[in-house]
Amino acid sequence: MSEPLPDVRTFRLSPAVVTPLRERLPHVATQTIDAIMAEVPAYREAFAGDLGVKIERAVRAALGTFLGLVSRGHSPDPQSPLAPALEAAYALGRGEARNGRSLDALLAAYRVGARSAWHELAEISVRSGQPAATIAHFAELVFAYIDELSAASVAGHADELASTGRARVRHLEHLARALLAGEPEATVMAAAQRADWSPPRTLTAVLVPEHASRAAIDLLDRRTLQLSEAGPGAPDRLVLLVPDAAGSSRDALLGLLRGRNVVVGPARPWLQVKASYDRAVRILALTPARGVIDTEEHLAELVLTADPQALADLRAHVLAPIGDTSDASAAKLVDTLRSWLRHQGRREDVAAELFIHPQTVRYRMTQLRELYGDKLRDPAWTTSLIIALTIR
């Protein structure tokens, strides 16, 4: 097992060691930047411009802090000279995350920089006549110092990603709320821009139980928006707004969600996804949520239940000849009439569905013809009866 690096705060080097190093700091910083540009592609273009000059100054300052730290006299607060360098390294990590450079690239830059800086510093120390033991001791201090800076940058990088991620999640949820609230186009477009979200051609609303939401989201397009509260019409449901799930892509979406109790609305132009959501909520109220419910398979129910009070009035009107349908004998007539309409008068099919004898079907239909007269041959009346008796 390798020995732990020393605590750079506790070591001191003599002025004879430090002075020639301090004189050559600009050269060391330049060589360090050149090495990083040559060996870490992610920084090659960035360091070639104005940023390269700034980073060179930062490297020079960091090395200067190190030399000041290991050459100073004893201090009552041994950490204070190191604190500014650690703060700068932390800020560097956050800045690299904001600029889209990965942690791997950042750590590679530290490794290359440490190696290059040490190569230059060691060469200076050798030329100034320092003994091998002193140079070896100095190497430990250099790498301990770089290790502390690297750890601070890693922390800054991680904190920035976490902060940025939380902010983007908030922006994406705000966008979803704006879409489902039917906000003006300008408001929604601004929300999409804040969330750094590229609008698709269409969005499809999907209502998912809370407990199944994570598994469902993992299957879908990464641009899928989600809202943790579906609203009063869909309790305990999350809303997912899935991009570009029209046509054959809709079949793929339904296949991905197979086995889950979800309601899938129609695909709509993305700014009009509220219509998809509203339809999904309506179907959820009409249909027990078992398995994948495709709202496109329930369009007739939507049309016929658009005005519930009108449907109730229609049912009362067309069943008025039968009388009190809560009466057992009247209820049997209603069931027979419904089946007769469904099976287009095929007596054997009606008997099979109701588990009665065909003669019983004939007897009841005779009663119904007496009650309705010629209305059972009137296309308009039979259409009204079908609508009234088909929708429960």
Results as ranks from 00 to 15, higher is better:
215 A>K: 13
51 L>S: 04
225 L>K: 08
97 A>Q: 02
222 R>N: 10
158 A>P: 04
165 G>H: 05
247 G>C: 02
52 G>V: 01
75 S>I: 00
167 A>C: 03
306 A>D: 15
343 H>T: 07
300 A>Q: 15
285 A>T: 13
273 V>M: 12
71 S>E: 04
255 G>A: 07
9 R>K: 12
70 V>M: 03
323 G>Y: 02
382 T>Y: 05
115 R>V: 11
77 D>C: 02
392 R>F: 08
334 V>R: 09
361 V>H: 05
251 D>L: 09
372 Y>L: 03
244 D>V: 07
242 V>W: 13
105 A>D: 07
377 R>H: 14
316 A>I: 09
313 D>T: 12
300 A>Y: 14
323 G>N: 08
340 W>S: 07
377 R>W: 12
203 L>K: 09
111 R>S: 15
201 R>I: 11
284 L>P: 01
110 Y>P: 00
161 L>N: 09
30 T>L: 05
16 A>S: 10
78 P>Y: 03
45 E>A: 06
162 A>P: 10
327 D>F: 06
187 T>H: 06
165 G>V: 01
270 W>E: 08
233 G>L: 10
332 K>Y: 08
379 P>K: 02
226 Q>W: 14
236 D>M: 08
110 Y>I: 07
71 S>M: 04
276 S>A: 11
118 W>C: 04
293 I>G: 04
27 H>W: 09
119 H>D: 09
266 P>A: 08
302 L>Q: 12
